[in-house]
């Protein structure tokens, strides 16, 4: 399969009053056409920063992009100018932000916002845009679209708002959709509907989707591959059918145990800033002597399985 987007060795730091914090370190992720890729990790692990970096949305300063490329159709998005970015943002790569309420303008009705979005992407009259937005609302399963068009964001429930934002994201028929925790605030029944919508999108127009979440259950349900992140590093890349049986990184195992309701025994010691070696060392139950001082690289175990852990150094090919 051809790669549609490639993130190569991305490294980002943020400046603050007492020095800099490393947000991302050496992130390399490839996205194939029509696939749903999951990114899991706890809060602060750099999932959202990765998503924003893809669209070059990181403010510099305070952000510092140390290294890396984001290659989309042969062009490095991190180096391209504002004009090129504007043809990509929203039109070819759309993003669904985490904060639902902040991504809609409270003083404009929904119809107006949708029409604005559509007319920004293509040359058409208002009435054409209106028809198109009705079709979009129907597409994402919002009932009674004519009435909804005149309502304001505060009159919609969380599920409807989420679907409205998805409608805006797919308005320009993008090639990639980045969804940042799209179902965190929703009920399970609505969550199931939205996941089904994503599945249909990836099948029908062949949209690639990057799904960011901390729920492994959702991952297992719709993703093909999973990237597990911890403190700005990719800890493991694995295909979903292998996740349950042959996941190997201790952090992945901790995540799996947590969703099974088991607790890992070793407590979370703080102070991760002054770690020289593996970032997971303080919480790891299987740490080796060299984990403290040496940084592990990504070891290839299989064609679709990579792990950043010294335990698997020998098994790597």
């Amino acid at each position: 399969m051809e790669k549609i987007l490639e993130i190569e060795n991305l490294g980002i730091r943020f400046k603050h009053s007492s020095g800099t914090t490393t947000a991302l370190e050496d992130i390399s992720i490839g996205l194939e056409k029509g696939e749903i890729l999951g990114i899991v990790g706890e809060s602060g692990s750099g999932k959202t920063v990765t998503a924003h970096a893809v669209l070059n949305l990181i403010d510099t300063p305070p952000g510092i992009i140390d290294s890396g490329k984001i290659i989309f159709h042969g062009e490095d998005l991190l180096k391209s100018g504002l004009k090129t970015l504007q043809t990509v943002r929203g039109k070819k790569i759309a993003i669904i932000f985490q904060e639902l309420m902040n991504s809609l303008n409270p003083v404009f009705c929904i119809g107006q916002q949708l029409i604005d979005v559509i007319r920004n992407y293509r040359n058409c009259t208002k009435s054409e845009a209106y028809k198109r937005s009705l079709a979009l609302l129907k597409n994402v399963g919002i009932p009674d679209p004519v009435c909804r068009m005149t309502q304001y964001p505060n009159q919609l429930s969380g599920g409807l708002r989420q679907r409205l934002i998805i409608a805006m994201a797919i308005a320009a028929e993008p090639e990639i959709i980045i969804a940042d925790e799209p179902t965190t605030a929703l009920d399970v029944t609505i969550q199931a509907q939205i996941l089904r919508l994503f599945q249909n999108l990836s099948k029908d127009p062949g949209c690639s989707i990057i799904l960011i979440t901390h729920n492994l259950g959702i991952m297992a349900k719709i993703c093909k591959r999973v990237v597990i992140m911890f403190s700005g590093l990719v800890m493991e890349k694995i295909s979903v059918n292998k996740l349950l049986n042959s996941a190997s990184h201790p952090y992945t195992l901790e995540l799996l145990n947590s969703s099974r309701g088991k607790i890992s025994l070793n407590e979370n010691k703080e102070k991760k800033s002054d770690l020289l070696g593996c970032k997971y060392f303080n919480r790891c139950s299987q740490a080796l002597g060299k984990c403290k001082t040496n940084k592990p690289g990504l070891f290839h175990l299989d064609s679709d399985h990579e792990v950043r852990c010294f335990l698997f150094e020998k098994e790597s090919r």
Partner: peptide, 11 residues
């Protein structure tokens, strides 16, 4: 039954 079928769980 609908709720349980919609719940995402690994195990």
């Amino acid at each position: 039954r609908a709720l349980i079928s919609a719940a995402t769980s690994l195990y």
